[in-house]
Design a protein around this nucleic acid. Sequence first.
DNA 1: GCTTTTTGTTAGTTTTACCTAACTATTTTA
DNA 2: TAAAATAGTTAGGTAAAACTAACAAAAAGC
Lengths: 146, 146
Amino acid sequence: MENEHVKLSQSLEDYLEMVHMLRLAHGIARVKDIAAALQVKMPSVAKAILELKKLGLVTQEPYSGVELTEAGRMAANEVLNRHILLKGFLIRLGVSEAVADKDACSMEHILSAETLSKIEDFMKPADAEITTVKKLKVAKGKKNEL
Amino acid sequence: MENEHVKLSQSLEDYLEMVHMLRLAHGIARVKDIAAALQVKMPSVAKAILELKKLGLVTQEPYSGVELTEAGRMAANEVLNRHILLKGFLIRLGVSEAVADKDACSMEHILSAETLSKIEDFMKPADAEITTVKKLKVAKGKKNEL
DNA sequence: GCTTTTTGTTAGTTTTACCTAACTATTTTA
DNA sequence: TAAAATAGTTAGGTAAAACTAACAAAAAGC
């Protein structure tokens, strides 16, 4: 029905992602809350939502918040997943949570697929690593016991 | 004499960095070459250079290329160092050189000081790491010798 | 149920960063 | 050295993304 893969601007990606996050967090995404969360004024949100409606990514019922279409949900999820990946990555590097969140927010729009994929690879052994560290500690302990 | 720490836009940082890179590579940074390298048209370069002149970061003698002032060189170096750091970082993650260069170019303008510093920490033990691995191997060897 | 408050939209402006078209100035070259 | 080619600038336009001010609609409170 709609354009499958319109490349959204950074700004529109941010609005779409925020709609998704607010709906996940509070069940509803109101213009006022989107504006507060993104630190812009309400008219900026209104304009952005209008664009997203044209692209078939959101619907909006008067005074009951913005909703995602199926296409919108998919697109929002992609962005959100990038955000989560990048934030986790930065935290792993030792960045504080607040800054990791902020920087992930900037990075999520600009990195190439290749870089994202390599970062995923880097994160993959995440839990495995902890296990490994534990194993090493256990191994050391045993040695001392001997 | 000039504003010490004017925060440059991403775009102006790019122009300034490119002037520096072209001067390092060819000794001269011409409007035409800056335009080609950044994939914009010459009038865009002219306008940007005008801004940088106002900020006291570059000077320009007719038909002999753009030059950096001392303040300009310092600012350009900061950006370039970020670029080099980030490119190396991405390559370390396994990203191809071309993509690492492109993504470093985007990242160099948006990351917070904290994140950059953590990435530096990550890169620091680069050579040291090899040494450490050697040390570990040596240590193991010694144990086996006992 | 009417008034006030809250929420949302519309209209118009600003800034940034790009563009094309047209012009000017310099350098090359015939 | 005059014409042609190259390099640079100026003027004016467009698009994105923000803003303020003014207006409209809905909810809440008395």
